[in-house]
Computed example of a mutant assay.
Amino acid sequence: MALIKKIRTNSRNGDISALLTLILKAFAKNDWSADTYLKPVIEKMRVVNMALIEALQRLRVYSQMAEKNRVRNMAIRDLFKLVEGYVHIPVAEMKEAAWVVENILKQYGLGMQYKDYAEESAEIASLLNDLSEPDVVTAIASLQGVAETITALEAAQKDFENVALQEAEGESAKKDLVSASNLKKETIAELNANLVDYLNTMARVKPGTYEAIAKTIAELIDKNNEWVKRRRKTDKVDSGMV
């Protein structure tokens, strides 16, 4: 039976990045430069791991964008709901002021939150600009809580734009970056074919040199595989970048 088992192909992006990091640390404890086969394999693992870490950072930015978008959508709904309440309030002065704001909101509609990120951002910017007109500001002053809700929307929009800028800068600098999932698949195939088989063979041929590192790698892969096997439910889809 082989000492080192194959890495499970259903390991996640983060699993493989963590595993690669630990494998590289294990190899770093000794000098393998004399092994002309193993040396380039280790170097390739190092390069791929850096690319995978970079890709995962990009994925985290996408995740942050989704969360920031959720927050600004909540602010939009809060504003529409609050103003709608004032429209139906039986106080003439407040009702009149509410209609000034409501007429602007109707031009945009709650449907803006279902548009793509860029289009929604443009509509929010336009809405906030309309709400800053002097007559509208006067009307808003009569409606308790509306000004604060608009401020919350402005803050949520700025937060979203800051994260979107990070993503855009990443796209510009690394437009040819391979997706995290593709890197993961390539890494698993590379390790299973070129590292696992080689170390299993060399641990038998030259146990004095390779048995210890083979046992370490076997333990690391076993822990990864066991974790993947036990994990049943996830809260995030393991997807590549588009």
Results as ranks from 00 to 15, higher is better:
S121V: 07
N103S: 11
N129C: 02
M112A: 09
I124Y: 00
Q107E: 15
M112P: 06
L127Q: 03
L110A: 13
I104V: 14
A98P: 05
L127A: 02
D116L: 04
K95S: 10
K115D: 11
L105Y: 11
Q107I: 10
Q113W: 01
A125F: 00
Y108F: 15
G109Y: 14
I124E: 00
V101T: 08
N129E: 08
K95N: 12
L128H: 06
L128Y: 07
N103R: 07
K115P: 02
Q107K: 14
Y114C: 07
L110Q: 14
S121A: 15
E96P: 01
V101W: 00
K115T: 12
K95Q: 14
Y117T: 15
D116Q: 08
V101N: 02
E119A: 13
A98Q: 02
L127N: 03
Y114N: 15
G111N: 14
A122M: 13
Y117E: 14
N103M: 09
G109E: 13
V100H: 02
D116R: 05
A125W: 00
S121T: 12
G111R: 10
A118F: 12
A125L: 03
K106V: 11
Y117A: 15
Y108M: 04
Q113M: 10
A97C: 07
E123I: 03
A97V: 11
G109C: 10
S121H: 04
N103W: 07
V100A: 02
K95V: 05
Y108D: 03
V101I: 13
